[in-house]
């Protein structure tokens, strides 16, 4: 198993990569919960003119029939018009691609963006859908049955951790 990278070291790398590609139409949306934490750190460093959007894909998940509705879904808030924008969709870990699929479906109910790019801190492989990240902090190998997730301390420090999947 590869070493788990330090999220705080990956963060400035991502910022540098993103900075070179920021256009006037660029806007950012973070996916609850880990993606929102990451986006809250990235957003102020990129000089985007619109406030950060936050999204909970609970109502668009494809496992509702199996899992039901998750408890305490958050309210999606997109404080700008999505129409014609270049959206940076931010999540902590890219795995099956199902969350991103749900997020794209939800996004289109707000309008028709010009483009969507995916920004993730870590890609652990294991894709079940044809989805890839345009901006990726690191590739991380994670054993089957384990879960890679972002944690945030009280002081706001981010770290990637591997834990047993429930």
């Amino acid at each position: 198993m590869s070493k788990i990278p330090d999220a705080e070291i990956l963060l400035p790398k991502l910022v540098a990569e993103l900075k070179a590609r920021i256009a006037p139409a660029t806007a950012m949306i973070g996916l609850y919960t880990g993606g929102a934490w990451l986006a809250e750190r990235l957003h102020p460093l990129l000089g985007l003119k619109d406030p950060l959007g936050l999204m909970d894909v609970a109502f668009y998940r494809d496992d509702y029939a199996q899992q039901g509705l998750k408890h305490d879904p958050k309210r999606t808030k997109i404080p700008f018009d999505v129409e014609g924008r270049e959206i940076l969709l931010v999540d902590d870990v890219l795995y099956t691609g199902r969350t991103v699929r749900a997020a794209m479906n939800e996004l289109f109910d707000y309008g028709r963006p010009k483009s969507i790019s995916l920004v993730v801190l870590a890609d652990r492989g294991g894709r079940q859908l044809p989805i890839g990240a345009q901006y990726c902090g690191a590739q991380v190998e994670v054993a089957e049955g384990m879960r890679l997730r972002l944690k945030r301390t009280a002081s706001g420090k981010l770290s990637l951790e591997i834990e047993r999947a429930e």
Partner: peptide, 14 residues
Amino acid sequence: DTAVPFAGLTEREV
């Protein structure tokens, strides 16, 4: 709690 995000849908196009 679940009704809160549903109440937010009224702001959307769809």
